[in-house]
Design a protein around this nucleic acid. Structure first.
Length: 574
RNA sequence: GCGCCCUUAGCUCAGUUGGAUAGAGCAUCGGUUUUCUAAACCGAGGGUCGUAGGUUCGAAUCCUUCAGGGCGCGCCA
């Protein structure tokens, strides 16, 4: 259902068949030949560079070749109405109205699948994976929504997707987390002052956890941290995972699978991974340089197991063991990724925050090493989110300490606006998020603008007393579109291409931009009726032209499909 | 110092795996409402695509140089 591919194939078939007549010797498998939308000022449905490419490889003037192709195509193609040769040798194409009519019928028939192409790959997407030592912050939200929508997008395109969350519930941070809760309990019970220590977690939520643990264990005295550690760690982890899951749910996100680092340690999965790496010569024993900077007080020069990540372009080989011989975070993560590899996905994707960029080479190197280069781990980074309120930077949070939590955000802004706005930017650009602007009900707010377009469509159908989902009756004769309808349908032609590009490049932000453009075309058509009666949809309570309803219905399908992928709701009335 | 990302209109950003005269929104200026929702629309001005080279029919897009901004550079997680 991709009109560009369809016409491209038609052009290629005709040119192949008439190769001799066109004096073509080298076809070069038609590499580099495209069919695209021409710039709007040309007023054509499609354009192709076929004559430019083939002209070059065959030493024929592109313009001349284009003219010859044009003659043949007009003669042979049932779908193409006219062709104009333009510029250096582009073919600008107008389709027949019958072909366009059939295409719209297909859109309506495909409905929820319009734009989807057939794929059957399996993906594992690991995202969020926020440390379970506290609530999610705004930066996590961006990665969370990016990962979720990327999953929706890949699913829409026919793939299988597992959404996964890795819980870092092991190591020093958990000890510090439990200790913070312990000290808050001491503070509440015995009025001991909570120390100012940068390793500890000071946030208000620690007090909440402390309160809860005191209430659920009234008999405990909390005199010895070591003795109570297991209990404290377990309860605190449970509590913060509950917070995180509740935030995710409020954002409309549900993971399929939660994988715990603790399980890796318990089952000793690291040894299994190390063996595979050893066998393939990716491991060595060696020394590392002392860390840069002046913070070398805990550093010991010691021989230890290293992963040869230099082989994968990393700055240095990476430690798998700590001073005491236990595994590093990285070693556990390697074991975790072995588990993912062994589950047989076609592709692995990790969504990371900007502060983890330096980790990419070592972990994707590990996946290549573990899978004998059969599986590639793709890592995508979400850049920082800068918060604004009424145009001014907005930083501190009372509850969480030094960051704005997801809850702070969700308290003021609805899920739909957050999701749309977080995606309304390429993921590798910093994002300015203004608390107030996303709630405005006007054109400045793209969420509103697209939703309003859909509400207007519903209003139109309501006025006509037609159900948007009911079949339309029309014989398809005289399917001549006005300039507004042509612009809309040309935009709709592009939808499958947007999906294809967005999936291939993991760039879901293309969808909100596209939907905004599409909404603009509709609002423009709608308003034209204000100045010119001939453009009003309704005349004496009935539709002026049924063909218009076809166009608008197919437009509504694209908006529905797009917003479904984004996970943003579409009110019928506003 | 090193690595990754970014630099496009006054501001915030798109730019279809190299295509035609580089596009939106905001801001500025000017217009549209006895109507199917003006919560909208139409028009105008505004650009050496950070710099300097290179690759070719053709570069914002690919390669190299330099400048500016962000993030990271532990045996932490």
């Amino acid at each position: 259902m991709n009109i560009f591919n369809k016409i491209e194939k038609e052009l290629i078939d005709i040119v192949s068949e008439k190769k001799k007549e066109l004096k073509l010797i080298q076809l070069n498998n038609f590499k580099g030949i495209t069919v695209e939308s021409p710039p709007q000022e040309f007023d054509f449905d499609l354009s192709s560079n076929i004559a430019l490419i083939l002209g070059k490889t065959n030493g024929i003037k592109p313009f001349e070749l284009a003219s010859n192709i044009k003659k043949l195509v007009i003669l042979k193609s049932k779908n193409i109405e006219t062709i104009e040769v333009a510029g250096p040798g582009f073919l600008n194409i107008k389709l027949t109205s019958q072909f366009i009519y059939q295409y719209i019928l297909d859109i309506i028939k495909f409905d929820k699948n319009y734009g989807s192409s057939i794929n059957d790959k399996s993906f594992n997407i690991e995202f969020v994976s926020a440390n379970p030592t506290g609530p999610m912050h705004v930066g996590h939200c961006r990665g969370a929504i990016y990962g979720d929508v990327l999953s929706n997008l890949l699913k829409f395109n026919g793939n299988k997707v597992t959404k996964e969350y890795y819980i870092n519930d092991y190591g020093n941070q958990i000890i510090n987390f439990a200790k913070s809760v312990f000290l808050r309990i001491r503070e509440i019970k015995y009025q001991e002052k909570f120390p100012a220590d940068s390793d500890l977690y000071p946030g208000q939520y620690i007090l909440d956890i402390a309160e809860e643990i005191i209430n659920s264990h009234p008999k405990l005295s909390f005199s010895d941290f070591k003795k109570d550690y297991e209990l404290l760690a377990e309860e605190s982890l449970k509590y913060s995972m509950k917070l995180i899951k509740s935030d995710l749910k409020k954002l409309g996100i549900q993971h399929d699978y939660f994988f715990s680092e603790k399980e890796i340690v318990k089952k000793d999965l690291v040894n299994k991974a190390i063996k595979i790496l050893e066998k393939n010569d990716y491991i060595k024993e060696g020394y590392l340089d002392p860390p840069k900077g002046d913070d070398t007080k805990n550093w010991i020069k010691k021989k230890r197991l290293l992963f040869k990540s230099k082989l994968f372009g990393d700055d240095t080989d990476r430690a798998l063991q700590k001073n005491d011989g236990t595994w590093t975070y990285f070693a556990n993560d390697v074991a975790y990724h072995l588990d993912k590899v062994s589950r047989g996905y076609d592709f692995l994707i990790n969504i990371l925050g900007a502060d983890h960029t330096g980790y990419i080479k070592r972990i994707s190197g590990a996946v290549s090493a573990l899978s004998q280069n059969k599986i590639k781990l793709e890592c995508r980074v979400c850049q920082l989110v800068k918060l604004y309120k009424k145009g001014k930077p907005f930083k501190m949070s009372k509850r969480a300490g030094d960051f704005i939590s997801a809850q702070d955000l969700l308290k003021e802004v609805d899920k739909d606006s957050i999701r749309f706005m977080m995606l309304n930017r390429s993921n590798d650009m910093e994002l300015d998020f203004d608390f107030d602007k996303v709630l405005e009900k006007n054109k400045e707010n793209p969420v509103f603008y697209v939703q309003y377009c859909y509400a207007r469509i519903n209003s139109l159908f309501n006025t006509l007393k037609i159900n948007l989902k009911d079949p339309l009756i029309y014989n398809g004769k005289d399917f001549n579109l006005n300039s507004y309808e042509i612009r809309i349908i040309r935009k709709i032609f592009n939808w499958p291409k947007v999906i294809e590009t967005a999936s291939k490049k993991f760039e879901p932000h293309r969808i909100p931009f596209y939907l905004y453009d599409l909404a603009t075309l509709f609002h423009s058509y709608w308003s034209k009726g204000n100045e010119d009666e001939n453009y009003r949809f309704i005349n004496n309570g009935v539709i002026r032209n049924t063909k218009t309803l076809f166009i608008i219905k197919s437009l509504s399908i694209v908006i529905e499909n797009g917003m479904n992928i984004l996970g943003v709701s579409l009110p019928k009335k506003m």
